[in-house]
Design a binder for these strands. Sequence first.
DNA 1: TCTGGGGTCCTAGGACCC
DNA 2: TCTGGGGTCCTAGGACCC
Length: 395
Amino acid sequence: MTAQRTQPRTQPQPATARRWVAHLDMDAFYASVELLRYPQLKGQAVVIGGGARHQPQTLDDGTLAFARLKHYAGRGVITTATYAAREHGVNSGMGLMKAARLAPEAVLLPVDFEAYRRASKAFKASVLSFAPDMEDRGIDEIYLELTALPGAQDPVGHDPFGGVRAIAQELRNTVRRTTGLTCSVGLSPNKLLSKLASEMDKPDGLTLITHADLPTRVWPLAVGKLNGVGPKAASKLHALGVRTIGDVAEKERAWLVKHFGVSYGAWLADASQGIDDRPVATRSEPVSMSRETTFDRDLHAVTDKTRLTAELDALVHALANDLARKGYAARTVGIKLRFDDFSLQSREITLPQATRDVLALRRAAGQCLKRADLHKRLRLLGVRAANLEARLHNG
DNA sequence: TCTGGGGTCCTAGGACCC
DNA sequence: TCTGGGGTCCTAGGACCC
């Protein structure tokens, strides 16, 4: 381990600038947007999820009555919970029924994607105005390439990274001023470390890490904190006695490759050392589009045939609409089935010509369905379009 | 009383072609 | 009768992420 020297202020900048990437993550995004609309709920345990049935009701005296989690019945999951609600042990992805046992008095609000999309556009636009190299990571997250921004390489006082820290601070101020929402920012030499950093001081935090911080701030973390290590890989690593990122870092690359394959093993080795060269991708074309729905009860292919056909029609219509609205046609059409035992099955077909015609899509989806094994009851049905080709919006 | 909906990327086998 | 080595496309499934 070599001691990290801070550069004297008088020293000229190195020819190769230090890379700085920010990861910006909105705090409890959906819930925070709802709190802007219902400020009287501030500080309370609030959970977002499920359909529009549990919309708040206006009482005779003009006050709003909110639905409580304990009254929920259905198969929905939590999309977001306020920090007050998380203290009860509920969190994103948890079934609402299960959450109701943990936090029965929590307020339940339906998901309003339109509102979140509007807020998302607003915060991204505010950031773009002074950090134009932005990668979209969904509705509430972005990466920003800050390396070349004015001041990013400048020290401030005794802080060698004061310049880039000030930029990040300004980002947070801008987001808060234009949207009324807080975010957490991670700042580091790459996307992987910045993603880790943004989680270190949530909500409303700003965390800067460099490679020098690896041993003290990254290696003690559980391996599952790495973006790319999910439940499967984590439990396999645990079984091999590897629990922290530092444990991974101590393993030989060859050992990791032996257990996890050339590609994933090598990635693990690099990731544990904080190595990540991925660029911030400012533009990207969609690869696929899909629509799916979980039924209120499990359906049987024979006895519920009429219902199933109607559901498929609706999904195909929605998908055709999405394709037209976004200006694409698809050559591959597929279906996705989830059964009552939660197992998945998919079928797809590639057509000679790309299409976004409802009837052509419906025919292809029907062919896929014919090839599926429909013995078990169906929980979910989905349709997918892939092999996308850009088309005129009205063509 | 478990487990939504929208995505991306990877792997692996078989078809098919040169 | 025995039997190569690529490369690309298609399909099914699975891990992972927001």
